[in-house]
């Protein structure tokens, strides 16, 4: 039995209150409790965080890059979802 038995975990850190958790990196740990502690030691030793999530890497479902076009392109031709789509006369405020 080797280190391979320590699975890989993805680490998400909330850098301060009011912000979302963002992906910080990954690490190995035998279980969730140790993963949290290892993450605390590794990714917040310069006070980079106030909250940590750890997720087994194997549990992450990702979109495939091969599906890039069908997945993300339809969103590109809907400019009316963005405020810059609309023309407002100059001088109109608070819009």
């Amino acid at each position: 039995m080797t280190n391979a038995d320590w699975p890989l975990w993805e680490v998400f850190v909330r850098s301060r209150r009011g912000l979302a958790h963002t992906h910080a990196g990954s690490l190995h740990a035998p279980d969730a409790e140790m993963a949290l502690r290892n993450a605390r030691d590794l990714y917040t030793r310069r006070s980079e965080g106030v909250s940590i999530w750890v997720v087994p890497s194997a549990e992450v479902t990702a979109s495939s890059p091969d599906e890039k076009d069908p997945f993300f392109e339809p969103a590109a031709d809907k400019p009316y979802r963005h405020p810059t789509f609309y023309e407002i006369p100059e001088g109109v405020k608070h819009l």
Binding site: N3, W6, L27, H28, A29, M34, R37, N38, D41, L42, R45
Partner: peptide, 11 residues
Amino acid sequence: PVLEEEVALAN
């Protein structure tokens, strides 16, 4: 015994 523990013990 493992790199993660290097970091923990040093902390």
